[in-house]
């Protein structure tokens, strides 16, 4: 079962068609980059996949479950279980320490304490922050904060990871490191990944690149 299947997706704002008959599939351990000009509909597509907006027509299936059949709580539980997020601005919770941020999705899924601690430790170790689990966010650099975000996105073993310009706020060298880490971790977890990026260099490191033009998704060779 594919982590993400989008078919015949249509989204309009008034008379304006934002997304028109979009077809998109992300397979397990596959990472798809979405590129496109500002206002092309990238954000709308991610909002629809995240269940934050409703489509006018078409289906979105995450791990085989049709989002349209779920109410708000149902879509929330779907995000909780099956989706991980990485944002451009990190969006870590400043009042939690590193381990608290990474463990939060596990808390929501009511993982047992011992398993939670083991998983958090494993994820932090994977992103190279094994020794910083009790650190406050203010003590971390931007790159380190985005590593925490990557660990958080994958901690609960999601089927799909949505990443929004995950390296947009980082310098070139750190961006390369973090991107490599993110892609590796998604692939290692066997999850699907969908990454919005303006960087052709980042897009090239993904398995597939699609471009949104006039509301339609075109494959980029």
């Amino acid at each position: 079962m594919n982590p993400l299947e989008v078919s015949s997706l249509v989204k309009r704002f008034g008379d304006r068609v934002i997304l028109d008959q979009v077809e998109l599939t992300v397979g397990a351990a596959e990472i798809v980059a979405i590129v496109g000009e500002s206002g092309s509909g990238k954000s709308t597509l991610l909002n629809l996949i995240a269940g934050l907006e409703s489509a006018d027509a078409g289906d979105i299936r995450i791990d085989g479950v049709e989002l349209g059949s779920l109410d708000d709580d149902g879509r929330t539980f779907m995000r909780r279980r099956s989706v991980g997020f990485v944002f451009q601005a990190f969006h870590l919770l400043p009042y939690l320490d590193v381990a608290g941020n990474v463990g939060l999705p596990l808390d929501l899924l009511a993982w047992a304490s011992a398993e939670r601690a083991e998983r958090v430790a494993a994820m932090l170790s994977a992103v190279g922050l094994g020794s910083r689990s009790r650190a406050r966010l203010q003590e971390l650099s931007g790159g380190e904060q985005q590593r925490v975000a990557v660990a958080r996105a994958l901690a609960h073993k999601p089927r799909l990871v949505l990443a929004d310009e995950p390296t947009g706020n980082l310098d070139t060298r750190t961006a390369g490191d973090v991107l490599g880490l993110l892609l590796n971790e998604i692939r290692a977890a066997g999850a699907g990944g969908l990454m919005v990026t303006h960087s052709s260099q980042a897009a090239r490191r993904c398995d597939r690149v699609v471009q949104i033009v006039d509301g339609r998704v075109l494959a980029v060779p």
Partner: peptide, 8 residues
């Protein structure tokens, strides 16, 4: 962010 992470 909490809503993204799965808080209802």
């Amino acid at each position: 962010v909490l809503r993204h992470l799965g808080f209802t």
